[in-house]
């Protein structure tokens, strides 16, 4: 498997969250994802970017196009140097929030993509990686 294209977007403001998900949309369109898959990717990106901003104090999103013939995938990695998550299982549970959200972002984005990975520990920041294949 090779990475044929990659880019990094900052996520430090609400406007950059919007810009990041617009970038995801345009890559997904270029890669000829179906409208439904485009929407799923963009929505997952929106959730994870906003978490990085709200809870991680801002961070970045890496975008990568994966080539695994005959398939292509879009991998998104959201990284922040925030406080991290002590209990990842609990954070993934629907309805769990420490903020004023609905507690659906993490669990919901896991259901919107094909691969989902989260690395987080208190004091070490959070990294969430998702992949969607076409």
């Amino acid at each position: 498997m090779t990475v044929s294209r990659s880019d990094v977007r900052p996520i430090r403001t609400e406007a950059e969250v919007v810009a990041a998900r617009q970038a995801v949309r345009s890559w997904a369109v270029e890669m000829k994802f179906s409208l439904i898959d485009q929407t799923k990717l963009v929505t997952a990106a929106s959730e994870l970017a906003r978490n990085a901003l709200n809870y991680g104090g801002g961070g970045q999103m890496r975008m990568e196009i994966l080539e695994r013939s005959p398939r292509q995938g879009l991998r998104l990695t959201f990284e922040d140097q925030g406080p991290g998550i002590a209990d990842v299982e609990q954070a993934l549970r629907d309805g769990f929030t420490t903020g004023s959200g609905m507690g659906l972002g993490l669990g919901g984005s896991r259901r919107l993509v094909d691969e989902f990975e989260i690395h987080s520990a208190p004091g070490e920041g959070t990294r969430v990686t998702v992949v969607k294949w076409r």
Binding site: L35, I36, Q38, T39, K40, T43, E47, D94, M102, L104, G105, G107, G108, S109, R111, L112
Partner: peptide, 13 residues
């Protein structure tokens, strides 16, 4: 729209 409906359902909203 259909894609929005699907996404909302996956999110659990």
């Amino acid at each position: 729209r259909p894609q929005i409906a699907q996404t909302i359902v996956h999110l659990g909203v």
